[in-house]
Amino acid sequence: MSFTHINQNGEANMVDVSEKTVTARIARAEAFIEMTPKTLDMIIKGDHHKGDVFATARIAGIQAAKQTSQLIPLCHPLMLSKVKVEFEVQADQNRIRIESLCKLAGQTGVEMEALTAASVAALTLFDMCKAVDKAMVISGVRVLEKQGGKSGHFVASNQGE
């Protein structure tokens, strides 16, 4: 197996997907952001002076998925048919789990879009709360599931942990 974004001369290369079959493609990704109990409580209660932290982070994640090809040099611009960003408060671990879903009918996968959505949603939560909690930690960014294309169906183990 070789890297798809490196040509035979070892140079960066955008993969030619023009001969690939159009199929339904789905990817889910997750990220976590840990914080102090006080910060988490403030978010849950909606007491943040900047407003609805979850709504802002959700919109940021959706916008980021749509901009992935502008951020990651060799990604193809995609016509996403669905982007979803959800939050799960895990109070017992003082963290928020972010899960993204990206879908399309196309010739290339949407894993990078899902990863970008989850990552930027986490970064937005950090940005909105950094004034009260500078020690927040973003971690665990990964693909949870990928469907479509010739590589088939992938599901990560230990989801949501």
Rank of each mutant, 00 (worst) to 15 (best):
S69H: 15
E11T: 11
V143Y: 12
I6R: 13
C129S: 10
L101P: 06
Q63A: 15
S139F: 09
D41F: 05
T124C: 05
I6N: 10
E86P: 11
A117W: 11
I138Y: 00
D52F: 09
E111I: 13
C75L: 08
A27Q: 11
V17C: 06
I33C: 01
G61K: 15
H5F: 09
E113V: 05
S139K: 05
C129W: 06
M128N: 07
S18F: 08
A12Q: 08
G160M: 09
K50Y: 09
A31W: 01
L101K: 12
G106F: 05
P77E: 14
E99P: 01
P73M: 01
A117Q: 12
L104K: 08
S18Q: 11
M112E: 11
M79F: 07
G10E: 02
K38P: 00
V89H: 08
I59M: 13
K103A: 10
S81L: 04
N94V: 02
V110N: 07
G152F: 09
T68E: 03
Q63H: 14
E111C: 12
V155G: 08
I26S: 04
E11M: 15
G149P: 00
S69Q: 13
S119M: 03
D47E: 15
F126Y: 15
H76C: 09
M136S: 02
E99R: 12
K134E: 14
L125S: 01
I33W: 07
V137R: 13
K130P: 12
D52T: 09
G149A: 04
F154T: 05
I33P: 02
L40G: 02
L115W: 10
K103L: 03
I96F: 07
M14D: 02
E111R: 09
V15C: 06
M1L: 08
D16F: 09
N94K: 00
D47F: 10
S69Y: 15
S69L: 04
L78E: 06
T36N: 03
H48S: 14
A114F: 14
A60T: 04
S18Y: 05
K130D: 01
L78P: 09
S2D: 11
M1R: 07
